[in-house]
């Protein structure tokens, strides 16, 4: 028989996976449309968490209530990054785009370190420790909210890309930049929109994470590392794959964290290399940029 502890571990894994999924969907959306990996994605998450923290600190705004504001703020930051940094580099080699976002990441991280110091900051809420118990299983309320919120955001993004005219335009330009521009898709606007949407995902994630996690200037590094693994696992640019990948990595983290807590990240990396070796196009096989170059 599977013990209750194990089921408990699985549940917390899935709940955590929801957040990973949301962060990774933002990253994979940006990559899928613009073909740029945003190495500052984790730092955007860090900014969102700090914004949530300061809103709670100064105005007593509940982090869940600030989610909408955070999404809007991060949307603007993302769109500005696309317009100001990525757009002028679109014709440059991919390495230059990577460096630009790496530079942005270093800058944001260290400006945060300078402004807000390396302290770990948390917020206190009334519902922080409350949980829902079903038999012997206990589910922390904030974790459940984070999972539900992340899933809701994921569904909204899905729905938007699938059913709206703008969403179709984004998908079209993701498939073929030239062809989409020829039929009149506004490339600049769609790219800004896609980058903004991808960043809004971490805005939402930041608000949802704040009651369960703490914020410090390098918090983004940890989450972006996880997101890289998830995105490769799901297939680069594949949103559905990223969601599944997020849940899988959440489960892996919960299980390996239960048995070999210190080696959690090593387990991730092993998975990462295995995917690259055996299924570089991701779980659903829809990833981009995986075309094999040569067989040695």
């Amino acid at each position: 028989m599977i013990s209750y502890t194990f089921i408990q571990v699985l549940i917390s894994g899935v709940l955590l996976g929801g957040i990973y999924a949301l962060i990774s969907i933002g990253l994979t959306l940006i990559f899928g449309v613009i073909k740029v990996i945003n190495f500052a994605h984790g730092e955007f998450l860090m900014l969102a968490m700090y914004f949530a923290y300061w809103m709670w600190h100064y105005w007593g705004v509940d982090p869940y209530a600030s989610v909408i504001v955070l999404a809007a703020l991060l949307f603007l930051i993302g769109a500005a990054t696309q317009r100001g940094i990525i757009q002028p580099l679109l014709r440059s080699p991919a390495s230059m785009q990577i460096f630009a976002t790496v530079g942005l990441s270093v800058t944001l991280q260290n400006v945060a370190l300078f402004l807000w110091k390396a302290d770990y900051r948390t917020i206190q809420t009334a519902y922080q420790a409350s949980k829902i118990t079903i038999g012997e299983l206990a589910i922390g309320y904030p974790r459940l909210v984070a999972f539900v919120g992340a899933t809701a955001m994921t569904i909204i993004i899905f729905w938007f890309l699938k059913n709206t005219f703008t969403g179709r335009a984004i998908r079209a330009i993701a498939q073929d930049r030239m062809a989409a521009m020829l039929v009149g898709v506004n490339q600049k606007r769609m790219y800004m929109l896609a980058f903004g949407l991808g960043s809004a995902c971490v805005g939402v994630a930041g608000g949802l994470l704040m009651p369960i996690y703490y914020v410090f200037p390098t918090v983004g590094t940890y989450f972006s590392l996880t997101a890289f693994v998830v995105v490769v696992l799901g297939g680069m640019g594949d949103i559905r794959g990223a969601w599944i990948g997020g849940i899988i990595i959440g489960l892996v983290e919960a299980i390996s964290g239960f048995y070999v807590p210190a080696l959690k990240e090593a387990v991730y990396f092993a998975i990462f290399i295995l995917i690259l070796l055996f299924r570089p196009s991701g779980i659903l096989g829809l990833g981009r940029g995986f075309e094999e170059v040569a067989q040695e």
Binding site: I37, A94, I98, L225, F228, V229, V232, M236, Y268, F269, F272, I273, L276, L277, P280, R288, G289, F290, E291, E292, V293, A294, Q295, E296
Partner: peptide, 16 residues
């Protein structure tokens, strides 16, 4: 595993 592939896999692998 990375050099057989295109895309930013090497960058991601090294950072990880």
């Amino acid at each position: 595993p990375c050099f057989r592939l295109r895309g930013p896999f090497y960058t991601l692998s090294t950072i990880a």
